[in-house]
């Protein structure tokens, strides 16, 4: 009798929480957004380490940029820059469209962004094949491929996110009230474009 009453006392009462404690959510920031912030912070540190290597090769060591007889494919990169900036504009258009409840505007914006991102990546691969040098051709070539390649990997990740966003958009997962998935993907895509502006300016132009 006494063991039965002890067991009954240890049981949770009605309305009490079972299992592990409930996670604490900040009232100011959503977990998914916080996750994207932390991811982007880690990406900034990764790019920072590559830019440090660039700085040491070009400024501290004084390596000629580009090292003769190689040439940087500036024309293709300039076209790519316009493509990527336009893709950011269509991404912004997609987000603004869904905020106003324009589902087809969002779908068109996401599809165009995905196509332009793919065009960027394909022309970068083409640029690599025609560059006339590879990673074994000195410090300049190594840093060139590391920085542009690292950015290319980020475009690939962004395209994967965009692909899922576009599929979800065509399945009707987003609305004027529920479009957080488009918002977060858009933040990442703009971050990738900001990094390209830094890479393009430092590696190709200056």
């Amino acid at each position: 009798m006494s063991s039965y009453s002890h067991a009954a006392e240890s049981l949770p009462h009605e309305g009490e929480h079972h299992g592990p404690p409930e996670p604490h959510y900040s009232s100011r920031i959503m977990p998914a957004t916080l996750g994207m912030y932390l991811f982007i912070a880690s990406e900034i540190m990764l790019f920072g380490s590559f830019f440090t290597a660039y700085f040491f090769v070009r400024v501290v060591n004084g390596t000629p940029w580009p090292t003769p007889p190689y040439h940087i494919p500036l024309f293709v990169a300039t076209i790519n820059t316009f493509i990527l900036m336009t893709s950011s504009a269509t991404m912004h258009w997609a987000t603004q469209a869904i905020k106003r409840g324009n589902v087809w505007g969002m779908r068109a914006g996401l599809l165009l962004t995905f196509l332009m991102g793919s065009a960027f990546l394909i022309s970068q691969i083409y640029e690599y094949m025609r560059a006339g040098f590879n990673t074994s051709n000195g410090a300049f070539a190594t840093i060139f491929f590391c920085l542009t390649g690292l950015h290319g990997c980020h475009v690939f990740v962004g395209l994967t996110i965009l692909l899922f966003m576009t599929i979800r958009a065509f399945r009707g997962h987003f609305s004027a009230e529920e479009h957080h998935g488009v918002e977060i993907g858009g933040i990442y895509w703009h971050f990738v474009d900001v990094m390209w502006i830094v890479v393009f300016t430092t590696v190709y132009i200056l």
Partner: peptide, 15 residues
Amino acid sequence: LRSEAEAFRFLVVVV
């Protein structure tokens, strides 16, 4: 990076 619109504005400023 508070929102997509803010990130786009930041991109324009960086450009």
